[in-house]
Amino acid sequence: MTGNPPQPGETPASPGDPWTYVTESLSLPLERPAPKNPPLTTAGELMIIEPRPGEAPTPLPPVESVESPRPGVTPLPEVSGSPEVTARLERMENSPFWLSEEERRAAEQRTDYEPPRSRHRPPARNPVTALGALVLLSLLAAFFGWVSAEPFWLAVGHGDAGYATTTRCDGDGLTQQCTGRFATTDGSLIVAGVTLLGISGDGRQPGAIAPARMVSPSSDQVYTATTGALTHLRWGIGFLLVLICGYGITVATGARRMPSRPARRGAVIASFLGPVLLLGGFLIAAY
């Protein structure tokens, strides 16, 4: 670049001077890029087309309302199936678990908000009826425990072996009652006037002698039948009936209708524990 540069306030002398091109370029206005978002049109710039006389305005198409999902919740896909599956998916989508803290507080403040109801349990029955059933089932459990204690000890091998002598037999079948005398093999124990169980056939005749076993000297019953399946069946059925009485107490007293789970557990355990303790007491007494 040659030539004398123009001084401040001076105009270049000749058009061929290169400084003339620089000065003209600097004097041109700069072109600014168009804005990305054009300004909004004001009300005065809008064009309103009025309908012609006698011409009805063209109705606008209906706008479908789309319900926007709650923030942070992905809507479930449409399921075309059974109504049960659809209802279950709707309950899952509308569960309070997906609510935010603000939405949950707002729902709690609403008057029409109802919390989920807990499982309704029927009220307890008449206490007089429950008390009567408790007493009756306890007596039945005591009876079954009493008739099962001695067969249990005989089945496990406890007791004294000896001979029973029939003195008298009355009745037949379930009403049969036989009495007699029991003596151990070594003669160390002799008990008279005991009830003989398991007598049949010629053993019913007075003076008949049969092998027998006695649980303890304080017992008033002698078993002439040998230890076998029948003896195990007697104490097994008796123990089962004791447990059934415990279950009956649970149902009759409403132990499973208690309000809380620990209370229900404690009431059910107590219902079974009573008959079991009665059975244990008779086992200790018969030993």
Rank of each mutant, 00 (worst) to 15 (best):
E93N: 14
E101K: 07
V66P: 05
V73E: 02
V66Y: 02
E108K: 02
S82G: 12
V147Q: 10
L89G: 06
E108S: 04
L76Q: 03
A141C: 00
E102T: 14
N126F: 05
T129N: 13
Q109M: 13
L76I: 04
L76R: 02
P122D: 12
R88F: 14
P71V: 15
P127C: 07
E103G: 05
S80F: 03
R121T: 15
P75A: 07
G72Y: 04
P71T: 07
S82H: 03
R117M: 15
S95H: 08
P122V: 11
G81H: 01
A87E: 08
R104Q: 12
S65H: 09
M92N: 12
N126K: 04
L134P: 10
E102S: 15
L137P: 00
R121C: 11
R91G: 13
R125V: 08
V147W: 03
F152I: 13
H120Q: 14
A149M: 03
P123K: 02
F144G: 01
G72T: 07
E90P: 00
D112G: 04
S82Y: 04
P96V: 11
L139T: 00
P115R: 09
E78P: 04
E103K: 01
F143Q: 08
S68P: 09
A124D: 13
P127W: 05
R91S: 15
L134R: 09
W146D: 02
A155P: 02
R70M: 15
V85H: 06
N94T: 15
W153Q: 04
E78F: 10
L131E: 05
G157D: 00
G157F: 07
E102W: 03
E150S: 15
G81A: 12
G72V: 10
G157V: 13
E90M: 12
P123Q: 00
G145Q: 06
E90Q: 12
L137S: 07
R70P: 11
S80K: 12
V135I: 15
E103Y: 01
S80G: 06
Y113L: 06
